[in-house]
Design a binder for these strands. Structure first.
Lengths: 134, 134
DNA sequence: GTCTATGCAAACGTTTTGCAGTGGG
DNA sequence: CCCACTGCAAAACGTTTGCATAGAC
């Protein structure tokens, strides 16, 4: 039987407040703002519980490792900025059911990651290049 | 300046012979068939060199960890069977350039992973279910 | 009071690094 | 003859586990 602990409540609150994919390190950092004693092992154990309960889902970031986000946000994908390393949620899904058809295979799910420059880093880069060319 | 060592030649040959995504453990195993003294650290260091040189690209496997494959195979994606854990190369790409447009962002690359059942495991599952229903 | 969940530390598998010595150019 | 590369061992990661104790019910 699952008990409601202050630690798990804090972890859930972190996800609700940040509203973006988080690493274990980030969960620990923000969570300690609420429960000072919060331990890494506790974070890992609660992530596992929340995954099993279907409250969280995990995404394997090609470069940043494992990240976690709330399932309540629905089907969507992510953009990773190669400069600032931030992960953005993307609205909608560019994949149509038809395009995923593969003879003989059963496609149950998919994961899509886009890479490039976010608006902020694009502007930064543009002004940097302007500066060096003078 | 990059030197041509027998170790790196062996590692490259392993990728050419196997022609599928490989783990570090597999590279080490096959590589030692050619260079008996081949060391883990050497494999990791050469993978890094080959990644920087653009000869390899890496993909994160949900269960098997990091895998590596030759870039020369061109742009393609992967299918992961949740039963047998095999990784299949998929021909083509279902994403059109247009569909990736995001206001303010610069999309430079993308990664797509499909999950589900491969043809073999689908058949296996079908016959299993037939068996239990009798 | 019971028993799950926690904090701590040690263990674990994977990847990286420091260093002395090898070998490619 | 250089110095990039190797092998080895130790260190550095991210994650899991064992254990005594705190705290939810």
């Amino acid at each position: 039987m699952k008990r409601n602990t202050t630690q798990r409540a804090a972890i859930e609150q972190v996800f609700c407040q940040q509203d973006r994919p988080l690493s274990v390190e980030e969960i620990l950092e923000y969570g300690r703002g609420m429960v000072e004693s919060l331990n890494q092992a506790t974070v890992y154990r609660n992530i596992k519980l929340l995954l099993e309960a279907g409250w969280l889902r995990q995404l394997r970031h090609p470069h940043l490792g494992m990240l976690y986000e709330r399932t309540s946000k629905g089907h969507h994908h992510h953009f990773h900025c190669r400069v600032c390393n931030r992960v953005y949620d993307l609205p909608g899904c560019p994949l149509k059911e038809r395009t995923l058809e593969l003879p003989g295979f059963v496609v149950e799910d998919h994961e899509l990651f886009l890479f490039g420059l976010c608006p902020e880093c694009r502007k930064q880069k543009a002004s940097d290049e302007l500066g060096t060319s003078i």
